Simulated assay, not measured.
Amino acid sequence: MVDARPMQIGELAERTGLSIRTLRHYDEIGLLRPSARSEGGFRLYTADDESRLLLIRRMKPLGYSLEQMGELLAVVDGLSASPADPVLTARLADIRDEAQRRREDLRRQLAAADEFVSQLEAR
């Protein structure tokens, strides 16, 4: 059963491994806005907000800028509203292709790092 209870910022930070400071920054720049605010003004996040944040977090190791992350989220949001939009579908395919290229670059870097560590261990 999914917990439908809204989370405060500290719980979301703990669940996602990101800092409260990062979450506040994402709110300030519009990357991840809380779904609601408590009567006391505390940010409240939903499971959908958590999923969105995890998508953002998964982009970080691939070297995406905050602007690029925002663009991807706009495409995802647009496709949620209009799943058959050909422009958004094409843009998502472009983003996916770029992510695969970035992943391959990381794979090559990791292989080089493994070789380096092996050489050090052989000495």
Results as ranks from 00 to 15, higher is better:
94 D>C: 01
52 R>P: 01
81 A>S: 14
19 S>Y: 02
44 L>C: 07
53 L>H: 07
77 D>T: 14
94 D>T: 11
98 E>Y: 04
47 A>I: 02
20 I>D: 04
36 A>Y: 01
60 K>W: 02
93 A>C: 01
93 A>G: 06
81 A>I: 11
70 G>I: 08
19 S>K: 04
37 R>I: 03
118 S>H: 11
21 R>Q: 07
23 L>E: 10
66 L>R: 03
44 L>M: 13
12 L>C: 08
69 M>H: 01
116 F>R: 11
79 L>Q: 10
119 Q>L: 13
11 E>V: 14
115 E>R: 13
65 S>E: 09
35 S>A: 15
44 L>N: 02
104 E>V: 07
39 E>H: 06
43 R>A: 07
70 G>S: 06
102 R>V: 02
24 R>C: 04
2 V>G: 00
71 E>G: 07
7 M>C: 02
75 V>I: 15
47 A>Q: 12
16 T>C: 14
121 E>L: 10
25 H>Q: 10
23 L>S: 08
91 R>N: 00
79 L>G: 11
106 L>E: 04
62 L>F: 15
52 R>D: 08
98 E>L: 15
66 L>Q: 03
65 S>M: 05
46 T>N: 04
36 A>L: 01
25 H>D: 05
96 R>P: 00
101 R>D: 12
97 D>E: 14
50 E>V: 10
104 E>N: 11
37 R>W: 05
109 Q>G: 05
53 L>F: 08
39 E>M: 01
69 M>K: 04
60 K>Q: 15
76 V>Q: 03
40 G>L: 01
11 E>L: 08
92 L>E: 03
57 R>V: 13
40 G>Q: 06
52 R>I: 06
2 V>L: 10
113 A>K: 06
88 L>M: 15
19 S>G: 12
47 A>M: 03
20 I>A: 04
88 L>I: 05
114 D>M: 07
43 R>V: 03
59 M>A: 12
71 E>P: 00
92 L>P: 00
121 E>A: 12
88 L>Y: 01
109 Q>R: 14
99 A>H: 07
48 D>W: 00
17 G>R: 09
102 R>E: 03
115 E>V: 00
39 E>G: 14
112 A>K: 05
4 A>F: 03
103 R>W: 14
72 L>T: 11
29 I>Y: 08
70 G>M: 10
14 E>S: 12
85 D>N: 15
23 L>Q: 05
60 K>C: 05
26 Y>R: 08
33 R>Y: 01
14 E>V: 02
24 R>I: 03
93 A>R: 14
79 L>Y: 11
68 Q>P: 04
48 D>I: 09
74 A>V: 05
112 A>G: 06
84 A>T: 14
96 R>S: 10
119 Q>C: 01
116 F>A: 09
40 G>R: 06
1 M>S: 14
103 R>N: 05
1 M>Y: 10
64 Y>N: 03
90 A>Q: 15
44 L>E: 13
119 Q>W: 06
36 A>K: 04
119 Q>N: 06
97 D>P: 00
60 K>N: 02
84 A>C: 02
45 Y>S: 09
86 P>I: 10
99 A>W: 03
90 A>G: 09
4 A>C: 00
114 D>S: 13
19 S>D: 07
93 A>K: 14
56 I>V: 15
45 Y>N: 05
78 G>Q: 09
69 M>Q: 13
1 M>D: 12
109 Q>N: 11
30 G>H: 10
101 R>T: 07
121 E>V: 07
34 P>G: 07
